[in-house]
Computed example of a mutant assay.
Amino acid sequence: MRTTRHGAEQPPRKQRRALGIPLALLGVGVVACLAAALLAGGGADAGRPAGLPVTAAPAGVPADSGSPAAPAEATTAPTQPPVSSAPPPPTATPSGSPRTTPASSASALASAVSVGSLAGRVKPGVGNQGVATAYEAADGNGACLFGPSPDLMIAAMNHTDYETAKACGAYVLVRAANGASITVRITNECPLPCAPGQLDLSQQAFAKLADLKVGRLPITWTLLSPATAPATMSIRYKDGSSQYWCGIQVIGHRNPVATLEVRTAKGWRQLPRTGYNYFLATDGNGCGGTVRVTDVYGEQLTVDGIAIKPDVIQPTKVQFARH
């Protein structure tokens, strides 16, 4: 009876094992699929340093969905603005369109550039210390070769600060320790041993500060951009100038001249300056053409129609701005 009973129960056990095998296989398949998915997901970031965000697709959109990328929300935008070496423009401008720099910004930029590269030792806004001496100025002509001066409120700049005629024509405000002051124009050079900072004033100018018997007077002085300058400046070609060689001089300028250029077939050509205050084109290229003059503040003035007329002062219609 025991054998018969066992023989009757055998088929149900076989059916249960047959049903359990497919279920086990199905479970293994699910686990394998999940593992493959995890491995595939990890492979998408393979080679990217830890901590960097995924930028291939927006949040919430599968990378393989084929949907167009949605605009990034404000909460996901970078919080740090792009680093810039200059302040942003006052008004937004579409990308690629021209932008006009405000006049105030252009002036500030011009001043910064001029002080750093255009001005020589005599710089705008920089005080200088030295001593004042006096000399007999005669008619006021000197190393700058301006010719006789309309007044004798003039001075000779020491050799160091004269700097190959860069100081020629500069207006300088001179102050003495006793409170007296005078404005003079640089028309001459005081050769060595005149020390840096020293001004050799005309006797007429020195007498405005102290008695001539003082001899040497401690002073401070600064570059000035005066309101009383001539209404317009002038251009003069040196004697002997022609289409083959020429020297060009600027006269009556409010601010010191930093550079002088002439227009040639290949563009603007900057001429070298001599110690006697002429700019030379030794091969004649540009002589008799358009002239462009730049002051120590960076302002540029262009002059047309200046013919080669040796030793003739030719007035223009322009003048540097006051600073």
Results as ranks from 00 to 15, higher is better:
Ala170Asn: 00
Ala50Tyr: 10
Pro310Trp: 07
Gln129Lys: 15
Gln15Val: 14
Pro49Met: 09
Val250Trp: 04
Val312His: 11
Leu109Trp: 11
Val61His: 10
Leu217Ala: 01
Thr228His: 02
Gly169Val: 06
Ala307Asn: 10
Pro218Thr: 05
Lys14Asp: 13
Val296Ile: 14
Gly29Trp: 10
Ile308Tyr: 02
Gly305Arg: 10
Ala110His: 12
Pro230Leu: 03
Ile154Trp: 00
Glu136Tyr: 11
Ser97Arg: 15
Ser111Gln: 14
Gly27Tyr: 02
Asp139Tyr: 03
Gln270Ile: 05
Asp161Ser: 01
Gly7Thr: 12
Gly179Ile: 08
Ser111Glu: 12
Arg17Gln: 13
Ser114Val: 00
Ala36Glu: 09
Ala8Asn: 13
Ser67Arg: 15
Arg48Trp: 06
Arg17Ile: 05
Ala8Lys: 15
Gln243Met: 09
Pro62Trp: 11
His253Thr: 11
Asp139Cys: 01
Glu73Arg: 15
Leu301Ala: 05
Val54Asp: 15
Thr91Phe: 12
Pro256Thr: 02
Phe320Ala: 03
Arg175Phe: 00
Gly215His: 07
Tyr278Gly: 01
Pro150Trp: 04
Gln15Leu: 13
Cys168Asn: 05
Pro191Val: 10
Ile219Asn: 01
Lys166Gly: 00
Leu260His: 02
Ser181Cys: 01
Pro315Leu: 06
Cys168Pro: 02
Tyr276Lys: 09
Ala77Ser: 12
Ala119Asn: 07
Gln198Phe: 06
Ala57Gly: 10
Asn255Phe: 00
Val122Leu: 13
Thr290Leu: 03
Ala63Asp: 11
Ala143Ser: 14
Gly7Cys: 09
Asn128Cys: 02
Pro82Met: 07
Ala119Arg: 10
Pro53Val: 01
Gln319Pro: 02
Pro310Met: 09
Ile306Val: 15
Tyr244Gly: 12
